[in-house]
Amino acid sequence: MNVDLGKVDKLIDKYRDEEAAYIPLLQDINSEFRYLPRDALKRVSQKMEVPLSHLFRLATFYKSFSLVPRGEHEIQVCMGTACHVRGAPRVLNKITQQFQIYPGETTADQKFTVETVNCVGACALGPLVVFDGKYFGHLNLSRTDKLLEGYHEENKKSS
């Protein structure tokens, strides 16, 4: 995959003058490309004069970074305590079965990434799923089915 290094440079310039601002820089790169492309990390390493190994260490330590491209749509299943006791594991099972991937993985067509998150601050609505930033609460198996169906349909239309 070709990476637009111009974009990377722009982000680097933002943090040039700050001391050791690698984490916010990688966060920006990660949200720009939906992952941390290898070439981008190399560029950061050169320009910020920091060993590539340090960047990889950060990239693998923190959960918010990904070294593989993530899907267009993000499905986050809340596995927080409140959601757990109200049956979140079943919802997660349903979703991972439907997409045939494990949590943290992306579907082969690069459309969906499924991941688990901890409490998203809406425990009263649990179990819940955050679909592209939108909350869907009080899920059970049939409501989960409906939610996924809707997105599949939309997806078919758009592609």
Partner: peptide, 11 residues
């Protein structure tokens, strides 16, 4: 706020 069931700091 890392506790998987808390959101008071957030709020």
């Amino acid at each position: 706020e890392g506790d998987p069931g808390c959101f008071q700091d957030r709020s």
